[in-house]
Design a protein around this nucleic acid. Structure first.
Lengths: 225, 225
DNA sequence: AAACATCTTTATAAAATCTTTATAAGGCGA
DNA sequence: TCGCCTTATAAAGATTTTATAAAGATGTTT
């Protein structure tokens, strides 16, 4: 089995070095970034198995980076944060962070959490293919086909579709969907959702105005079937 | 299984005796009270599975007793009332009575209602799916099926159905339903309720004009079964 | 910088739902 | 049977919710 690759995004050289040594001696492959921009770029190019993200970066706020990453990055992101910053942590978790650690942290705990987070990556969902009539979704390859033809979905559209599929048959409220896809603070932005459901329908439905898959539950939300 | 214990609170010795004989021959354990005070005391000491309460007691008004009991007593209370006292019945139901019977009553009906009321006791129900013959309600998914087919309910219709199910077998007054679904200030809008019961029946009943589930209790309200 | 893709807002049309009114139908006692 | 009261049903009007297009904003790629 290949080594798992971990990306560290932290501006303090000392911590980067410490983490790198520890992780490499535990048989992980490590790449490091000293700034938010560099981190985003490395993440995009390497698509690592896990990202360790420091919230207090000089160039871009850690929250912003997290949001950017979560537009397309499905795997685990562990947040590193200074002690005493509970609201930061809550916000980060709401934005899709997998876990968090407060500095200073013990190495053993870090390693345990990393193992758990990487294990979670291999979720069965991620490697299966699901078929709904004319629709076929390959989670592993992040590909969607309709009538055998590959269709192109943007990140948000794909995330939305995955959320629907994970909750097949269930009525999802607007607020729940918004919270899951855009994060806690977007719960009121129902119009976003309408727009994206619209574009998604155009791509996956035969007749977007008579949808078979994404059903509107007026006053409540949507249901996938 | 243990015998269910029933407390009868009624000042007429004749009725007490009649009820006691009937109930005991149907395998219930019976205790009786001839006055309101005695009834409250016995209820507190025995915590019976069901209480039959006559509204016309000499020492304390039946309504007062009902209120006292409902401060701590969670199980079923069936009201016994003389005919021709509709407003009494409505008031009692609004105060938390489970059901009512007008005197004189037929024994078969009494026994049926007692069975239903005791069944309700053991049904605080946490399960997410409920089935009533051809009707199936999945609270988790917020979905209703009739003969295996998903049917679409509007918010208000669904809320109404959930309220009925939560109070299965119990007569709900118009005012109670209106207060629960539309809020306190809508208690007079009985016509709303008629319209929505109408649409709900059309969706969940086989023959909306001969309803099996939502039963009209004329002058009082509705009952779900 | 220009071209492109995507996300976010705004505007407006269309659909669904709720509320209100009108009228029919049923039950019950006089 | 008639009149009265309650309930049921239909349908018009009002309001809310949803769908869709399109313009503006942002960021990325070439």
């Amino acid at each position: 089995m290949n080594k798992a690759e971990i990306l560290i995004i932290d501006d303090e050289a000392q911590i980067r070095k410490l983490l790198q040594i520890n992780l490499e001696s535990n048989d992980y492959k490590v790449i490091t970034a000293a700034s938010g921009h560099e981190g985003l770029s490395l993440a995009a190019n390497h698509s690592p198995d896990l990202i360790l993200l420091d919230l207090g970066l000089p160039d871009i706020s850690g929250h912003k980076i997290l949001q950017e990453l979560r537009q397309w990055y499905q795997k685990s992101i562990i947040i590193l944060s200074v002690m005493d910053n509970e609201s930061d942590i809550v916000q980060a978790l709401d934005n899709g962070a997998t876990d968090y650690l407060t500095k200073p942290f013990r190495t053993g705990e870090l390693l345990a959490r990393i193992r758990a987070a990487i294990r979670r990556n291999l979720d069965p969902d991620q490697s299966t293919i699901k078929v709904y009539g004319d629709l076929e979704v390959d989670f592993g390859a992040r590909m969607v086909k309709k009538n055998q033809e590959t269709i192109k979905l943007t990140q948000t559209e794909y995330n939305l579709l995955v959320l629907f599929i994970k909750n097949e048959g269930k009525v999802l409220t607007h607020q729940f969907i918004l919270k899951e896809i855009w994060g806690y603070s977007y719960q009121m932005e129902t119009q976003y959702l309408r727009v994206f459901v619209g574009t998604l329908r155009k791509k996956i439905e035969d007749s977007p105005n008579i949808p078979k898959h994404i059903i509107t539950e007026s006053g409540i939300g949507y249901r996938f079937q």
